[in-house]
Each structure stands twice: as structure tokens, then as C-alpha cells.
Design a binder for these strands. Structure first.
Lengths: 341, 341
DNA sequence: CTGAAAGCGCTTACAG
DNA sequence: CTGAAAGCGCTTACAG
């Protein structure tokens, strides 16, 4: 079976290959009849343009790279799914590139990626979307990029995030409404801007309800389950013990639940636990975790769509989008036991 | 900054571009001095060959596609990680393509993928690695592929899997050794060959220990957490209730644990639970799940490496590899309570 | 509205 | 051991 190229189509349609190319790219200046004729031959010959040839001629790869370094598999899968949706819509493909922020190799690593893969653009997820160094490098190299879930000050680039501060505020307020005053907090990874925002939301809720912020109730995590387990130990050993824990993500919250259960602390009766992200684990354990749902797929889809637009028409203006996060109440939070009464 | 191409290198080195090409591809018939000279210019100019141009000339994309349709995010991430490792080693990139086995669109979907992406090969994960229809299609189209975790009868293709039957045998024997006789079993998705193999291992262990197989103890799952929850209900409602449950994967086992906990059944004292896969959730819940660890990354890495070899040298012989699965004991299984004594 | 020529950055097939 | 020519399948820049 012979390969079908632009030449075979031109031959069959009795036009030049430039005309075929015009039809292919929806360019103007083709008579309706000619266009029809060429379109018909496309079908007859089952023709699909070769993206590699097109890429060489246009100096484009039609590939978007997705950078991530995140302990949460479910987060990564959601990111990929949103990115793929946008890519497929515009005939792009997605190349995944897990790598490490720390270690000083990042820029060299990305430089090599760009040289060998000739990506058309990059979608950055946390913590890369928060890296000023990386952003500066991409600007210098004039590589289009879009940032997901980042609060980095970088107004002239595409950015889609959700309202982390507000989400943290709402879930903390939910705990306060249940009568909790001693609410422990587990921070996320210091390289992620979400970490500081969620902390801010927590503190704002306390302040608005005239509850004193207690530094002793704050533990340092890094979003991994393991760090949650460490923080859980610190928090559950506190005297007096807090009546609620708000962990900056669900994995760390699950670690608190595991330790509480091991110690035969009843959740939520003796301890309320809240997470963040609405990861699958939040509903796979008992009691299910009260948490904040973020539209991760949607965020990534929008970011990649805008990125592809920016690649095609660089003069377009840049968007900064903030989506809503939503409180999901499950069984892990309940009214504070009236120990004091 | 001017683009560095094979021509600039040839110019600088004072040779023809064909000679540069020879050095690039490690071809023979270049004098050591010439080779040295060219290699030096590579460094000076910081030259990297353009994979797109090379792809056009050689009719290659240097991209491997990875097909999956699996409810387990952690499985997918492990597959990707193994595949990426192999790809990067040989200068390939990985294109991920989640899609659905059912619905009749599969072949059309893959056909379009192949036409638009010009993949050099495909790595198939379950349930695609078990699809005779897909394998036949790829054979007809002469698209190189490698199968992961599949027991499909297809001896002339690359295949890497782990010993599911043996793993299931061992974990069932572990439960038997703890004194259990009434061991419920939750099956996986019928489209995966692992489902039947794990079931076989379970039955073989019963038989070897002279325990009668009881069909009433078998529930139909599909590897999803949700199906595990349904099966859990069926099993925990049985009269008399089994003293142990072996679920074909950890998500379904986690669902059994959740329901048992909700019903205040003590695990493992009143009910032992075992899973399969050693997914992260197995250690994120309390009690941690006894399970079987499979080398998923390793399997995929090997499959993709062999695939890339086959692409480069199609006349090479084909390997069928079976790796070992390993029993991991955690807290969810224990000696059967001596109710009868 | 249409097309002939040149080029994208490589490799293949051939000649010397 | 080395190179000039042609080609991979498209697009760009120009001419008519």
C-alpha cells in the first residue's frame, strides 16, 4: 500500500501541492470548487498530513511538555487528563516530563529537554509554576509557557489557579462552626505557593472569629503522606491536644487519621480531621475526609488551551484566571465533644 | 543567536554534511581524526540534531505511545515512570494515550492515533495487552508493540508480566497458614487476564490444602474501588461470614476494610483482609494491607526497552519475560479467632 | 485565485 | 574514507 502524501493528493485532484496545502490549513484564496475537489480527494485517499514534515517546515513540533514533581499520583493523573483534553482538541500531543525542582540540575535538565524534543510550549505545575528561576529562563529563551496552581508574581504569563486562600478559610470556618477552637494546622511543601495561601486562609478564619492563633499548633509538612505521619505524631502528642486538625492536603490528613486510629482515638468524636484537594483517598477511607475540591483538570485544560492559543498568535493578551474551590463535607469532622461542660 | 544545524557544523569542521551525519550516527568509515574534529565542533557550537528533521528523513518519530485504561492512578503512574525511563535511555519520548477498550471505537481510535502521531511503537497495558482484536490490528498494520502484564496467547510478540497465579497462590496460602478456611475472593475486571490467573492461584492454594472451593464466597469485582464496595457488602452479609477476604487488588481490599470498619468489625481480629498490587493505599490506611508487590515499573521498562530494540532491528528475536511477585505482610491479616474452640 | 521554486535539517543511495 | 545529489512531506516567499 502506497503512502498517501500531499503529492498524491495534488496529482489526483489535478492541482498544485500549494493549493492542497491551502485547503489543509484553511487558508483563503481557494475557489469553493477547488476546495471541494481537494476535500473529496482527501476522503477518497484517506489522507492525513504528516505532522513531522509539517513540523520541519514550520519549525514546530506540535508537542506540549508537561513538567511535574508531585508526590500525589492522583494530582498528576488529573493534570495529565486536563492537559490531554486541550492538546487533542487542537491537534497537539503531550509529552510528560517528571523532574526535580531541587538539586541545581533543573535548568540544565530543561535545557536538554528543549533541545532534544523541540517542544512548542511548556505547562508548569507546582512546584515548577512557582519557580522564578525557571520562569526567567523560559522568558529568556522565549519558550511559551503556562502556569497552573501558582501564585507567583508573573503577570505577563498565562496562569490558572484556584482560590486556595478562600478554600482554606472556608474549611477552617467549618471547623470553627462545629465548636472547635484548638485547630492544628499541617503546612505543605515550602516550594509551593499554595502552602502559604492555605496557611493564610487558616489564620484569617481564626482572626475573623476572634480565636487566637497558636504557633504551637502548626506542624511543618511537605504534602507527602510520610511528612503527614511525622506531623501527626507531633500534633497528637501535644498537651492539651487540639480537637481538630486541618492538613494542607488529603494525604497528610489520611496520615493523621491512620495514627489516630492506631491510637484508638475516635474520629470525628474525639478528633476532627480535614484535608485539602479531594483526592481519591479522601473517600476511600473511613471516616471519609472533609476536604476542599479543586478543579484540577479544568485548571490544566484552560492553561493548555491558552498556551496553544499563545503559540499560534503570540500577540494575544495573556489571561490570569482564578477558579473556585469547593467545600466537601464527609464524616471526618463533627461537633466538638463537650469536654469542657 | 543563529540556529546550529548540520550545515553549520559541516562548515566549521570543513567536511561535508554527510560526514557529520556519519559521526552523529556512529557509522563506520570515518577516520579517527575526522571524527575527533567533528566531535569537537559539536561541543563548540553546542549542537543537537533536530529530531524532527531526522524523523522526516528516516520516517520515524522517535515517539512511543502508551495505551492505558485503568482505574488505578498509582498503576498508571508506575507504568509511565518505567516507560519514560526506557524511552529516555534511547532518546525516545513517550506519548500517553488513555482510551477505552469497550464501545467499539477502539480500533478507529488507535487508527487515528497512528495516523496523526506517527508513533514508532506502542506499549500496551491491561486491558489492551489482553485484546486479541487490537493485537491482530497492529500485526496487520505492522506496528511494533510490546505487551505488559498480559497472559494473551501471542508468542511472537514482546511480553513482560509478573507471576499473578503464583502471587495469588502465596497470599492465599498465607491466609490458610493463619488458620483461615472460609476465604472469600473478589474477582477483577473480566477483560484483564490477571483476573483469571489470580482466581486460579486462589483455587490452587485451596486445593493443595484440601479446602473445598465454595462458589458462594466468590464476588465479581472489576478492580475499581466502587466494585470492591459492592462486593464487600455481598461478602460481609454472608451467613456464615467468611473469616478472611482476598481481593484481587488493593483498591477493592480497601473498600472491604472501609465497610468492615463502618460495621465495627475488627480487622484483623474478626476479619483478615488481603489485597494485590501493593498500591500506595495499602500502606496509607490502618490496618495496612497485606498484599502482593509486582514490579510494575520494571515490567514496563523492560517491555519498552525491548520494543525500542525491535524497532531498530526488526529481525531480532522476541522475548517473553515473567517476573516474580512478592508477598508483603502488614497488619490486615492475622490468625483466625478460635471461635470454634 | 493559483503555482513553480526553494527550503526546513536531516538521511539514503550512489559514486569515487 | 569522503562527498555531491536527491529526497523525506510539508510550508514560506514570491510571482503571476
Amino acid at each position: 500500500m502506497k503512502k498517501v502524501t500531499i503529492n498524491s493528493v495534488a496529482l489526483h485532484a489535478g492541482v498544485s501541492k500549494k493549493t492542497v496545502s491551502r485547503v489543509l490549513n484553511n487558508e483563503p484564496n481557494v475557489s469553493p470548487e477547488t476546495r471541494e475537489k481537494v476535500l473529496k480527494v482527501f476522503k477518497e485517499l484517506d489522507y492525513t498530513p504528516n505532522p513531522i514534515a509539517r513540523g520541519l517546515a514550520r519549525n514546530r513540533s506540535f508537542i506540549i511538555g508537561c513538567l511535574y514533581d508531585n508526590p500525589s499520583k492522583s494530582y498528576i493523573t488529573r493534570v495529565q487528563s486536563g492537559a490531554l483534553e486541550a492538546c487533542h482538541k487542537y491537534g497537539y500531543n503531550l509529552l510528560i516530563h517528571p523532574c526535580e525542582l531541587r538539586g541545581g540540575e533543573l535548568i540544565a535538565n530543561i535545557e536538554q529537554l528543549l533541545q532534544t524534543s523541540r517542544l512548542d510550549g511548556l505547562v508548569l505545575t507546582p512546584p515548577f509554576s512557582d519557580s522564578q528561576e525557571l520562569v526567567n529562563f523560559l522568558k529568556k529563551k522565549a519558550i511559551p509557557y503556562a502556569r497552573v496552581a501558582s501564585a507567583l508574581k508573573d503577570d505577563d504569563s498565562i496562569s490558572v489557579r484556584s482560590n486556595d486562600e478562600q478554600g482554606a478559610f472556608e474549611i477552617t470556618e467549618h471547623l470553627i462552626a462545629l465548636g472547635h477552637q484548638d485547630i492544628a494546622f499541617i503546612k505543605g511543601h515550602p516550594d509551593h505557593s499554595a502552602t502559604e495561601l492555605r496557611f493564610k486562609g487558616y489564620k484569617r478564619a481564626l482572626a475573623e472569629h476572634q480565636i487566637a492563633f497558636q504557633p504551637r499548633l502548626v506542624a511543618e509538612g511537605n504534602f507527602s503522606y510520610h511528612s503527614g505521619a511525622d506531623s501527626a505524631k507531633t500534633i497528637l502528642d501535644l498537651q492539651p491536644r487540639p480537637t481538630a486538625v486541618f492538613a494542607s492536603n488529603d494525604y497528610m490528613a489520611a496520615a493523621v487519621l491512620k495514627l489516630a486510629t492506631q491510637r484508638q482515638l475516635r474520629v470525628p468524636d474525639e478528633l476532627s480531621i480535614a484535608g485539602f484537594d479531594n483526592a481519591p483517598i479522601a473517600r476511600h477511607i473511613w471516616p471519609g475526609l472533609t476536604t476542599i475540591a479543586q478543579p484540577v483538570e479544568e485548571m490544566t485544560r484552560m492553561a493548555v488551551e491558552q498556551l496553544i492559543m499563545a503559540i499560534s498568535e503570540p500577540q494575544e493578551h495573556v489571561f490570569q484566571t482564578v477558579l473556585e474551590a469547593k467545600l466537601i463535607c464527609r464524616e471526618s469532622t463533627a461537633a466538638r465533644a463537650n469536654a469542657a461542660n
